[in-house]
Design a protein around this nucleic acid. Structure first.
Lengths: 247, 247
DNA sequence: CGGAAAGTTGAGTGGGATCAAGCCGCGTGG
DNA sequence: CCACGCGGCTTGATCCCACTCAACTTTCCG
């Protein structure tokens, strides 16, 4: 049976990696090897463990003062912004190991809101403390630079001019790969987000997404049943998504 | 007569700001006040001044090894990526003071190419040296974090689901504001980029862009003649672009 | 159960793409 | 000097993908 990835606990009970805090089964953003034990020991002093947030709870809101970088420990977080017309734009979905809030450094205010899609646990890293620590720890500083750099690339990829089916294929594969990197199945999962949220992320109307998914299923690319998704033909999906890659 | 912004020289001959190098009339990305003289003195030791590049010259190419962050000193640079279908996606236009290459930190390869749209002068900042310097200079480190954060926000704004006319209005205003911040006219300019490049940036067909510009002109919003653009009704343009703001 | 929200499906529309000429500025060479 | 060609840009005609509107079904929760 499909597993709702956001409800799973540590998939690596036996080979737990060194991580930012004992409760995090993953390193920051799943980048391996860039953080050493000494960094982690010092990080432990400034990390705050936020209480669990249940689905629908805001972790921060657009316009809030920026104080913390957050690392998802458990669950799935959606970031989104609301424009002046009141339309919501989904910016991303974040799973354990992902950092959120890096976009708030410049203005010292969050340019987007973050909401828990299911039960979410977070670490909060006070930015001042992290920056100060990064100055003393080159590996940590470099890690932060890399994470921010990565966010730039990701946002740029999303902003490209690609057909709906290309974006959907890339989304499904990206999701699966990220799950795979976290030790879950990279072919089957249960989505934490609604159709509307996916549609908004992909710049599609919900109806269009529904039809696209149906077509993908008819073509044997995926099996979709509600929020359960199974990738059946990775190769063909990759072929569809390829225009989006090598950006 | 309209002034081609990219061919202008220092617009602040009398009140030249402290800047990263004597030849740069602007600080990094025009962020004021975040760099002190001591930082600049140390920066001067690692900065390399690249020879002028004329229009059409590549400053780096997608896939190139990442070594330098570049700061535009003069002229206009376009960054773009080519996907596997061979389609070109314009990522941004960069003018004096702008930093390029921050997206290459993560993979240590440039995810995009950069090309001079006219005569371009660059500073190159060896990333290793800058990172090392940033560790000793909190204001520099913070500046780098802010610049990267800003790039994330910008890319995210571009990736939003907005109508063509909203994106065009935002583009024109953004361009004008950036020129204004650099001391040029914020109502009249001569574009350094072609229609095709603008269209690619805005995810439009060149034909659609042409028609849109024509419509804007018919409505009295702008005056367009070839590459000369004049903003005539800032307020209405802002109203059109507003859905895109407050992201 | 019942009501509301989410999701799907169908019909029709429209915004922007595509295809195809034509125009214009400009450099080149006869 | 003009003829020519080329590329950038515009304009027109047509097409199609994705949106909108509307109805229906399913799921979720109280």
């Amino acid at each position: 049976m499909a597993t709702r990835f956001s409800e799973l606990h540590d998939p690596h009970p036996r080979h737990a990696r060194v991580s930012a805090c004992r409760a995090c089964p993953f390193g920051f953003d799943c980048l391996p090897g860039a953080m050493d034990d000494a960094d982690l020991a010092e990080l432990a002093d400034v990390i705050e463990h936020a209480p669990p947030a249940h689905a629908g709870t805001h972790l921060f809101r657009q316009g809030d003062e920026f104080q913390y970088i957050a690392v998802v420990r458990l669950g799935t977080v959606k970031t989104y912004s609301v424009d002046r017309e009141g339309r919501e734009h989904t910016l991303g979905f974040h799973m354990p190991g992902d950092m959120i809030g890096l976009d708030a450094i410049d203005q010292e205010r969050h340019p987007c809101s973050a909401i828990a899609l299911d039960t979410v646990m977070l670490c909060r890293l006070p930015f001042r403390a992290i920056a100060e620590l990064a100055a003393r720890r080159p590996t940590l500083q470099h890690k932060l630079f890399r994470l921010m750099s990565r966010d730039i690339v990701r946002a740029a990829q999303l902003s490209g001019n690609h057909a709906a089916e290309e974006r959907l294929a890339a989304f499904l594969l990206g999701l699966a790969d990220r799950l795979g990197a976290r030790g879950f199945s990279s072919t089957r999962c249960q989505l934490a987000m609604s159709r509307m949220e996916i549609a908004s992320y992909l710049r599609l109307a919900p109806e269009t997404l529904s039809r696209l998914l149906r077509r993908f299923q008819a073509e044997g690319l995926v099996t979709v049943e509600g929020r359960d998704v199974e990738l059946r033909e990775r190769a063909r999906l990759q072929a569809m998504a390829s225009p989006l890659l090598q950006c």
